[in-house]
Amino acid sequence: MTKFFTSSIGQKFFMSITGLFLMLFLIVHLTINSLLLFGDGTLFNQAANFMGSNPVMKVIEPILGLGFILHIIYAAYITLKNVKARPKGYKVTTKTKVSWASKNMFILGVLIFIFLVIHLANFFWKVKFGNIETIMVEGKEIHDLYALVAGLFKGWWWYNVIYIVGVIFLFLHLTHGFWSAFQTIGWDNEKWMPRLKVIGYIYSIIICGGFAFIPMYFLIKYVV
């Protein structure tokens, strides 16, 4: 098994597993976020506070963090090794037609990472360590996360732009990442490959469409 961790397929396996795990997280994340679109924010606040406080999530949170870290470390390591596998490149860049995303997963990953840092600083950091106003809901005092989100999206148009651009990077990353993860763990064959690609697109559209819709919703609702 030790060989497995250092083998190319083994490393790719961890990329895929962490990737799939992160894709699951995105579903949960979007589900909660979509509550922003309903009512006056109470629903969202309740859900967000529930996620922030329940013990199961306390356990999952570091795992999630670990998932991110492993995904990033493995990506960097594999990419470095792959670059070394061609010490001298071609003069004429390849004309073989493959999807742009598939060739640029690492760059997309770096861009998403930058976005992630901004995103974490703006939300996660503030929730964990900042002073966030509280409101009373059903007799309990909870963080008014709705106000935080709405404030950001209402206040700075450029934040909306960063957010949407980040989501576009994520979309491209996912279009390749989704089916690629299944391919790498071997859950793929001639029949399923086109299906997985379609499912991957649908998934990416739903996830990224959802995430992109939220800032636009706030822009339209409050600014326009």
């Binding site: 190319s8 397929i9 490393q11 790719k12 594999i78 090794k81 792959n82 070394k84 596998a85 061609r86 390849t94 073989t96 037609k97 493959v98 999807s99 598939s102 060739k103 997963m105 390749h176 089916w179 690629s180 391919q183 790498t184």
Partner: peptide, 12 residues
């Protein structure tokens, strides 16, 4: 040799 990142260039 590098590892596979599923670009599919090989099969083309």
């Amino acid at each position: 040799f590098g590892s596979c990142t599923n670009t599919g260039a090989c099969e083309i």
